[in-house]
Amino acid sequence: MRNTFSETLYECAKADPMIYIVVADISPAGSMANFQHEYPDRFLNVGVAEQSMIGIAAGLALKGCRPFAYTIATFSLYRPFEMVRDDLCYQNLPVTVVGMGAGVIYSTLGGTHHTMEDIAVAGAIPNMQIIAPCDPLETIEATRHCALQSKGPVYLRIGKAGEPHLTENAVDPWEFGKIRYIRRGDDVCILTYGVLTKMAAEVADSLEAQGKSVSLVSCHTVKPLDRKGIEAALASHKHVIVIEENVPQGGLAAQTKQIAWDTQATCRLDTFTLRDEFIHNYGSYDDLLDAHGISQAKILAAVA
């Protein structure tokens, strides 16, 4: 996703001289070298100074530019939180805060490098929009959307590297603010977003092997959430499963439950999220998710 983000932003910057990227000593690989080489004025490395990264991005936006602020998710959102809130959200400026390696992807770096509650934190701020693409193809769409939009701030939550393509044959096109059926079935509907969509797809495969007809939905725009789309998914499936890399509060699972209550949904609803606990384990990404009950085997056992 990092490389795809970088290539896409480079393409956008070629076409639009108002696109800037402000990084805090962490740069996306790939085409960012071309960006930096060809547009050195529009590539700012502020050093290890994330508060100023956001403030500078706000200043650029106040002058009509459309900057991206980029670093590891925990440092792009938590460290400069008040700058994100006041400078970007309160002033409603079109700045994209890129949270790279979000969730527990940095599985060997320890809890200081995890963003388990970024969706809840970013989603709590008025004016903030959240996009979490599920694969490199959605990352292209999301990055283009962010580069072109002038509505307000976006938290763009991306993974790291090596994510597979999941949406080449998706039923629906990518559209900001709309949930997207990657595949469409009748019995079970899996709602998910971000890097975890790969595991959700494997769960869908297993359920299909059991003879069920399964929908797999990318809820890439986590805010504003497509409430009508979720409502329809709840109404048209007997069983809805939410799989989410966020704490139980403030994310897709909590909101889906709220929508289910509000609309008196009658389907079965199971949610799988990170727990409201820090992780002190190390290992692979899958190992860390498993520590909080998120694995294909555990999900399949729970939804049987």
Binding site: Q51, I54, G55, A57, A58, G59
Partner: peptide, 8 residues
Amino acid sequence: SMALGMAY
């Protein structure tokens, strides 16, 4: 920081 971004 905002003034710096504006000046830049």
